[in-house]
């Protein structure tokens, strides 16, 4: 009879070690796997949402095993609820740790946000007030995550639609202080900078001037939707459902000109297009990265 043995996974093999890709990468969508493997021109890396691979086994892990054999994989959590008032979910941390052990991701990142309250999981990145009390909580949570995973975490700046009366400092001050106290590094989402700046009436250039760019190890780029609030104020939504906006490309180039090339992810999670369309967005980021190749940060050159 036909063998029904499950093939050995890459689990117990030593995974390939890749240098830091000073290139663009793409969010991995299972429906693209065939086209990705058939594509002669490789992107720099792939990133996956950790929660999508927290099942016990089956096709998702088989696909990620296959991808990981050829590419650096970045692991991006969306549900750790680092900004939450309650304690971190130990079972979730343990699941995350198993993924880190299994896939040896190039980097591990999470959000400055919360998503769990009591037992309810709200599948969104909810905002926190920038207070000293929240700062202490976020630092404790990141410390716990970094200890549990045995890895340095990259923390991502959020897209926000509201602010809080209780905030005592700016978002950039808050993020800098979190990084200083926890030892985490940063994921700079340039689209989030543009979305929040537009929604809250400040210049994205001012935000970037205050942002600790020397701690940034990865950049995210994505498309946003345009809406209006009740007063007719423009309200940008971090929709991940279309190409990156021209203004965001311009901001991105300013960041790369200062920071030098670093891994840059194109996120496209809704209305996902064909692989060739997503790939062309990654190509556009590569053009900017290669324009500034000679500006490479000495520390990153060393790491690669």
């Amino acid at each position: 009879m036909k063998s029904r043995r499950i093939p050995r996974s890459a689990h117990d093999l030593r995974l390939p070690i890749f240098p830091t890709p000073l290139r663009s990468g793409a969010g991995f969508k299972p429906e693209h796997l065939g086209d990705i493997l058939a594509d002669a021109r490789k992107v720099g890396f792939f990133e996956v949402h950790a929660e999508n691979y927290m099942g016990d086994g089956g096709a998702p892990h088989a696909m990620l095993d296959r991808l990981r054999a050829d590419y650096p994989v970045f692991l991006h959590g969306v549900a750790m609820s680092i900004g939450g008032e309650g304690p971190l979910d130990k079972a979730h941390l343990a699941r995350f740790r198993r993924l880190v052990d299994r896939y040896e991701p190039h980097v591990v990142s999470e959000h400055l946000a919360w998503s769990t309250h009591d037992t309810a999981y709200f599948n969104d990145l909810l905002p926190v007030p920038y207070t000293r009390a929240v700062l202490a909580r976020v630092v404790d949570h990141i410390d716990e995550v970094q200890n549990a995973l045995g890895r340095t975490l990259l923390l991502e700046n959020p897209s926000t639609y509201v602010t809080f009366d209780s905030s005592e400092m700016s978002e950039t001050q808050f993020i800098l202080e979190v990084a200083r106290q926890s030892g985490c590094e940063l994921l700079l989402d340039v689209n989030n900078v543009f979305v929040s700046a537009t929604n809250h009436d400040y210049a994205p250039e001012d935000y970037l001037a205050d942002f600790p760019l020397h701690l940034v190890r990865e950049i995210h780029l994505a498309g946003h939707a345009t809406d209006q609030d009740d007063a007719g104020h423009t309200l940008l939504i971090d929709a991940h459902d279309r190409p990156v906006a021209a203004e965001v490309w311009n901001l991105y180039e300013k960041v790369i000109a200062v920071r030098g090339p670093i891994p840059t992810l194109i996120e496209w999670d809704n209305d996902v297009p064909e692989w060739s369309v997503l790939k062309s967005e990654a190509d556009a980021a590569d053009v900017i990265l290669s324009r500034h190749a000679s500006d490479a940060h000495p520390e990153l050159r060393h790491a690669s």
């Binding site: 939450g84 008032e85 309650g86 919360w114 309250h117 009591d118 309810a120 709200f122 969104d124 909810l126 905002p127 007030p129 639609y161 509201v162 602010t163 809080f164 009366d165 209780s166 929604n199 809250h200 809406d227 209006q228 609030d229 009740d230 007063a231 104020h233 309200l235 939504i237």
Partner: peptide, 30 residues
């Protein structure tokens, strides 16, 4: 956090009081 969470699944809930931007369409994004 409980005040912010209370309206996430309830369209009739008011904008949480700690939110500075009380325009309902902003909280409604979440």
């Amino acid at each position: 956090e409980a005040r912010f969470a209370a309206g996430l699944l309830d369209p009739s809930a008011p904008v949480p009081e700690q939110v500075r931007d009380q325009a309902p369409r902003r909280y409604a994004v979440y």
